[in-house]
Simulated assay, not measured.
Amino acid sequence: MSIMNRADFAQDALMGNYWNETTSIMNQWYPREANRADENYYYWWQAHVIDVFVDGLNRTGDRLYKDRIEAIYEGLLRSNGGTFLHHYYDDMEWLGLALLRAYQATGNEAYKQSALELWADIKTAWSEHMGGGMAWNKGQLDYKNTPANAPAAILAARLFQCFGDKSDLEWALKIYKWNKENLVDPETGFVWDGINRLGDMQIDYDWAFTYCQGVYIGAGVELYRSTGDRSFLEEAKRTAHACIVRLCSPGNHVLPDEGIDDTGLFKGILVRYLVELLRAAPEMNEVREAVLANRAILLEQGLDKASGLCGPSWESLPVVPVQLSVQLSGVMLLEAAEALQRLE
C-alpha cells in the first residue's frame, strides 16, 4: 500500500468510524455507543477535522473532500448554535485556521467570511495585563498561554499573506513577541504552556506539551514567510531541535503518549507544523527523520489494519473505545508524511 493509499485509508476510516449523518459532525468516540449525553462538546476537534479534509483535498483534488468540508461546515455551525463564535479563544483560532485553508483550497467565500468574523472576535483576547498577550478564554482574561497566542500569530500572519492587510502582520508580530518573551526558554527555545493559570503569576514549567512546540514553530515559519526575516526561521528551528531532544524517545524519535481528550490531538498538531518547517528549511534532517520514524512506528505497530483505528501511543495497537482526538492525530501524521514525500 502506497503512502497516498495509507492517507486515503486513514481518511476513509475517520469517516466510516466517526461521521454522524444526523449532526453532520464527528462523534467523539468509536464505537458510537461510547458517546455519552453528558460529555463536553469539543468544538475545536471538529476544526481539526476540517483541517484534515483540506489535507485530503490538497493531496488528491478529489471532490469528495470538498463535499466533506461543506457538510461539516454546516454541521458545526448548527451544533454551535448558529454561530462559530465560542467561549475559548484558542478554539476559535483553530477553526479560523482551518476555514482559511478551506477557503484557499476551494474559493468558497463563506469560509473566508467566517474566518474573518472569527478573527475579529479573537482580537478581543488581547489585553495589556502582563504586558500583553492573548487570553485563553473569555472568562479568564488574565490567563495567557501559548495555545491562545501562537495559533493566533499563525492566523494573523496567514491572513496577511492571503489578503495583504498590514494590520494583520502587526498583530502577528506583537503576539509572537509576547509569546517569545514570556513563554519560551531563552536558553533552549523550548516552549512553556502558560502563565497565571492559578492567579499566582507562575509559569507552568512542568506542562511540557508537543503542541506548544508545534504552534510556536508554526508561528515562526509564518512570520518568516511574511517578512523574509530569517531570525524567525532560526527560532523555529531551535524550538524544533529542543522539542526532539526533550520529548522524543532517544534513539527512535518516537513522540510520547500524551493520553486522551484534548491532549490526544497534540502530536498531530506538532507534526503538521514540523512539515511546515521543512517546507521552509529542508535542511532540517532531524525533523524529517522524526516525522518518518513516527509514521513507520504507527504503520508497523500502532495502526489497526482492519478498522484503521490508532491509539494515543503510536507504538501499540488501539484499545476501543477510541477518541476522535486520538484518531485525528494519526490521520494528521499520515497526511504529513505524504506531504513530506512530495517535498523530496
Rank of each mutant, 00 (worst) to 15 (best):
E315K: 14
Y89S: 07
Y41M: 11
W136F: 14
A290M: 15
E128C: 04
C248Q: 10
E289V: 06
A339C: 11
E117H: 13
P250R: 09
P250M: 09
P186C: 06
C310D: 06
G164W: 04
T22E: 15
D304T: 04
D12A: 12
S329V: 07
S167E: 14
L118A: 07
L57K: 03
L169W: 08
Q327Y: 10
Y42I: 08
L274F: 13
S231L: 09
L328Q: 04
L328A: 05
E258L: 06
A135P: 03
A156I: 05
A153F: 02
E338Q: 13
T106F: 08
A7K: 02
N5T: 11
Q11S: 14
F266E: 01
Y18M: 08
W314G: 01
S79C: 12
Y43P: 10
A120V: 11
G82F: 09
I154E: 00
L298A: 05
V49R: 02
T124I: 09
A10Y: 02
G81L: 11
P312G: 06
D67K: 14
H87P: 05
I3W: 08
P318E: 04
W44G: 05
G251T: 09
H48F: 13
D90C: 10
W94L: 09
R59S: 13
W314E: 01
G330I: 02
M4D: 13
M26T: 09
V287G: 01
L317T: 07
A71S: 15
L173W: 00
N108A: 10
L99R: 01
N182C: 11
G308L: 03
G75N: 01
K180V: 02
R288I: 01
I244R: 08
V191W: 00
S313F: 06
L233T: 10
V49H: 05
Q46V: 06
T106I: 10
E33A: 14
G218A: 06
A37I: 13
L303C: 05
I154P: 00
W119D: 02
E338N: 12
S79Y: 04
L173H: 01
Y211P: 03
A219I: 01
D8C: 10
L97A: 06
D91M: 08
L292Q: 13
A115F: 02
F9D: 08
D51R: 09
E234V: 08
E289N: 11
E74K: 11
T60I: 09
T23L: 12
D8R: 09
W192Y: 15
N35Y: 02
G214N: 04
E128N: 14
A125G: 14
D185R: 08
A236F: 05
F160V: 08
L141S: 12
E258H: 06
L309V: 07
V245Q: 15
N35E: 14
D257R: 06
Y216C: 01
F163Q: 13
W29H: 12
P250D: 10
G218I: 01
S226K: 11
A13E: 02
L76A: 13
Y176F: 15
Y143I: 03
H129G: 10
E33I: 13
D165G: 05
N137V: 05
L57C: 07
F9C: 04
A71F: 04
M130A: 13
G308I: 00
M1K: 14
L303G: 00
S127V: 03
R246T: 11
E181C: 04
P321R: 04
L95K: 02
N27T: 12
T106A: 09
Y176P: 00
G82A: 11
V52N: 03
N149K: 02
R59C: 10
L303R: 00
